[in-house]
C-alpha cells in the first residue's frame, strides 16, 4: 500500500509540474523566448524553435507520467531533463548571469533555491525509473535483467 501511495505521489507531482510548466510556456512563447535568451547559451536563431517546441515536449512528458503510458521511459526522460536543467541552472548561476529561471513561472530568478528545487525533483523521477529494482532489492529478490524493463 505504501509503495502504491509513493508511486502515485511521484507520478502526480512530476506529471502535474511538467504539464503546468509546459502550459505556461505554450501560453507565453515570447516570454519563454526571453527566458531562453537570458541563459546566453544558444544562438539567437535557435531560440524561437526551442520556445515553440520544447514546451510541448514538457507537456507530453507530463501527460505520459500522469497517464502511465511507457512510464519508465517517461520517468527516464524526466530525470534526464531535470538533470539537464540542474546543470544548466548551476552553470548559468556560477557565470554570474542574472537570468530568469523560466521553470514554473517567469518571475523566478536563478538562485541556489531554484537549483535545489530542480535537484530535489530528480528524486521522484529517479524513484519512478528505478522503482522495481528498489522494491526487489528491499525485498531481497534479484533485480530483473535490463531487457525485461
Amino acid at each position: 500500500m505504501a509503495w502504491r501511495v509513493l508511486h502515485w505521489a511521484c507520478r502526480i507531482l512530476l506529471g502535474a509540474l511538467f504539464l503546468y510548466s509546459g502550459y505556461i510556456k505554450i501560453a507565453q512563447p515570447l516570454q519563454f523566448s526571453a527566458a531562453v535568451a537570458g541563459y546566453q547559451v544558444v544562438p539567437e536563431t535557435w531560440i524561437w524553435p526551442i520556445a515553440l517546441y520544447f514546451p510541448w515536449l514538457e507537456a507530453a512528458l507530463g501527460i505520459g507520467l500522469l497517464a502511465g503510458w511507457k512510464l519508465r521511459h517517461a520517468a527516464g526522460a524526466a530525470a534526464l531533463l531535470l538533470l539537464f536543467f540542474t546543470v544548466l541552472l548551476t552553470v548559468t548561476w556560477s557565470r554570474g548571469i542574472q537570468a530568469n529561471c523560466g521553470c514554473l513561472s517567469f518571475d523566478d530568478p536563478i538562485s541556489p533555491a531554484t537549483i535545489a528545487r530542480d535537484s530535489l525533483l530528480l528524486i521522484p523521477a529517479l524513484y519512478l525509473l528505478l522503482e522495481d529494482r528498489l522494491k526487489n532489492s528491499l525485498a531481497g529478490a534479484p533485480s530483473p535483467p535490463p531487457s525485461a524493463a
Partner: peptide
C-alpha cells in the same frame, strides 16, 4: 515591475514580456 517590459498585441491577443527578446524571435512571432 521591471525594465524592459513590453506588451505585444495582435489579433485580439496580448502577451506581456519582461526582458530582452532578440530580433529573429520577434520576426518569427
Amino acid at each position: 515591475q521591471a525594465t524592459p517590459t513590453f506588451i505585444i498585441r495582435a489579433a485580439g491577443k496580448e502577451e506581456r514580456v519582461d526582458g530582452y527578446v532578440p530580433y529573429p524571435v520577434m520576426k518569427h512571432f
